[in-house]
Design a protein around this nucleic acid. Structure first.
Lengths: 158, 158
DNA sequence: CTTAATTGATATAAATATAGTATCAGTTAG
DNA sequence: CTAACTGATACTATATTTATATCAATTAAG
């Protein structure tokens, strides 16, 4: 049971970088390099987030992406919904069918209850919250964005 | 985000039928027909449950499957683990790497916490519990196993 | 003692979802 | 003008999920 797909994982971590460098545009390339994510794939993820109004972009040299909202307004739940669809049990033709099959119906009720729990949990986890945890941990660990890496220009992609 | 795959869904509902007809062997065919599941696929699901000691079988005419445990001893969590793997975040090479990437590490911590919540919730849902809910609901709805359906012999599968 | 209803075991295919790559066009700072 | 960027989109590859098919072995029952 995979909770987060790569897209969601990449999205969250990219947003954390944007959150850490708030106020300036951050290029996909720098995120991809620093967080070790596939460049083109990440681009797609970011474009999807633009469509959902989470971030904004600027084209051209010195361009990149920037948060369009406060970090606390971006919840992991929303990201999961964008990249993995609404949290739901199998194919849910439930609402319409009024539970033709009783065992499925009873089962569904339990699952929906649990889904609500999961949903609530994820809703509470925001980019802002994660950022604060990151900062709290930074006393003990090397910086998240500690300048250019020595090999940041050595790219063999595309 | 799909919580239950078909296998888990079928497994749970098949177990509910076995639980409802406890004491006698129930054939895959009758389960497949009554619950509208693909026959061969369901067979695979049941065989998997045999391997995990949840049910027992008897070959030949009048053969079929039977619960090997008390319904209360069979939790949905275990079924999810059997058919969908242990509840875990993406690829978790965590334990070994000691979090090379800090944002991933912080994120992971949150996810693990939520996973624990989910896990606990699913652990509490047992076949026994679902059976009791089924019975409670049966006052309002037609029986789960109300004899042979009129068309139960009209099969065009295989 | 044959037959039909069953499970055991296993191979394969089809469908879908996830992950990743490539390309070309447009924008912009320097 | 050019190199560093994003926008848009088409494509490929891989993995997972779902489903089907087949053949052998077992067994109740006529």
């Amino acid at each position: 049971m995979k909770v987060l797909t790569k897209k969601t994982d990449y999205a969250i971590r990219a947003l954390l970088m944007l959150g850490a460098k708030r106020g300036s545009y951050v290029s996909v390339r720098s995120i991809a390099v620093e967080q070790d994510m596939p460049y083109q794939f990440l681009r797609g993820v970011l474009q999807e987030m633009i469509r959902h109004g989470l971030i904004v972009s600027k084209e051209g040299v010195q361009g990149g992406f920037m948060l369009a909202k406060e970090p606390d307004e971006i919840g992991v739940k929303q990201l999961i919904e964008i990249f993995q669809g609404t949290v739901q049990v199998s194919e849910c033709m439930f609402r319409k069918q009024l539970c033709a099959n009783r065992s499925r119906c009873v089962l569904r009720h339990e699952i929906m209850r649990i889904e609500q729990v999961v949903s609530d949990e994820f809703e509470q986890v925001t980019i802002g919250k994660l950022l604060r945890k990151l900062n709290a941990a930074s006393n003990l660990m090397p910086a998240l964005t500690d300048g250019e890496k020595p090999d940041s220009t050595i790219l063999k992609e595309e």
